[in-house]
Design a binder for these strands. Structure first.
Lengths: 207, 207
DNA sequence: TCGGTAAGACGAAACGTCTCGGTTCGGCGG
DNA sequence: CCGCCGAACCGAGACGTTTCGTCTTACCGA
């Protein structure tokens, strides 16, 4: 997704690449994605425009790489990959979803993440990279934890972990993306409750 | 959302307004939202640029009004408002969600709806109009049906209809917006099953 | 020497504003 | 009731500005 060609990358300037990442994230945070221009990124990074056009096909692609670099560094610092498994699925899910809420409400991540999501909605090519490189690795953590839960009988055997995960994450994403209602800890907890125990009365016959 | 001011609208040209709607929807469908320009819409509609700039604050606002007009006309033709209530909640929800899937997969609606959603992700001002005028009325139909279901004991008394609705719609929106996986009838059915009967084993104690 | 780089010139395209006549509608005097 | 007038809208498009993406030039480093 960086570019179709990867020319003699041995001569590529690492310093310029990093300066471009920093400038892109900073400008999107300060002035918003729409007002961020490639010319602006180049100027801020002290870099020729051609250096950007040579390596990336679009403004969104630059920001995707920049944002990915950002979250990878943050992930290295945290060094806590995966979803905890205390044996209590409900508590584990609530914990993680509340953390996700906090992340989505963090202004530092909100602006670039929104921009990438919005661009992905409209640009299928970018969406493929956004999903496969940023979103899907996160979702696979849910698949892993939910599969484990299924093996210990904490969720029903007939449940597809993929669909279970989307039942949890979908509502969060919906509120975040379209701003229908505020995204809170209470909401995350309520979603987990509803998803785990269902809307129908517990005594109702399984269809 | 048409504009902060509503000047003497008696003198406003209805023909121009409709021509602008038609041109906007057509151009977005043909060339995509990003390549659609206000100049292009004006030219296609046979209208002066100022006529657009006078009544709408942005390209997105034009498309919102145009799309809203489109779905209202379609709704008038269908003349079947609301979610059916046959007494079988599961069947009713599956029916409606499958219909939603078909709508989201319809190329005629996909392009403008995507453009508006994407713009709303990034522009809170537009999002307010998008949600209140287009999305929320749809969601209220779910609230109504789910509230009825709660009164007849088809869903648990402790469930907030608002959250129940998002449990159903959120996953659909998630797949549609980010294109993580294809949006199918089977998926709609599976979401309803999971949401109604929960992920946890039916015998599990209610938390 | 060869290819990446910084800097910036360049034409094309769209922006949003403004001006120009022409048209249409509401109001007022006859 | 009729006819005029002015205000507001209309289509058309000129205008200066901004950003785009390409291209040119000179430099530098492996």
């Amino acid at each position: 997704m960086t570019h179709r060609k990867a020319p003699g990358s041995s001569r590529r300037s690492e310093a310029s690449r990093r300066a471009i990442y920093a400038a892109a994230v900073a400008l999107v945070g300060e002035t918003g994605y729409a007002k961020t221009t490639i010319e602006g990124i180049a100027a801020r990074a002290g870099v020729g425009k051609q250096t950007i056009y040579r390596w990336w096909p679009s403004k969104a692609a630059v920001l995707l790489d920049a944002f990915l670099d950002l979250v990878e560094q943050a992930a290295d610092r945290a060094a806590e990959p995966g979803i905890p498994d205390t044996g209590d699925l409900e508590a584990d899910l609530k914990l993680v979803l509340r953390a996700t809420v906090d992340e989505l409400n963090d202004p530092a991540y909100d602006a670039p993440a929104r921009a990438l999501a919005a661009e992905s909605v409209v640009d299928a090519r970018l969406a493929a990279g956004f999903v496969s490189r940023l979103l899907e690795p996160q979702l696979q953590l849910y698949v892993k934890r939910l599969t484990a839960a299924r093996e210990t009988g904490q969720i029903r055997a007939g449940i597809d972990p993929r669909i279970a995960l989307e039942l949890l994450v979908g509502p969060l994403a919906h509120r975040w993306l379209l701003r229908t209602l505020p995204l809170t800890h209470d909401y995350a907890n309520a979603v987990v409750d509803c998803a785990l125990y269902g809307l129908a009365p517990r005594g109702a016959p399984r269809a």
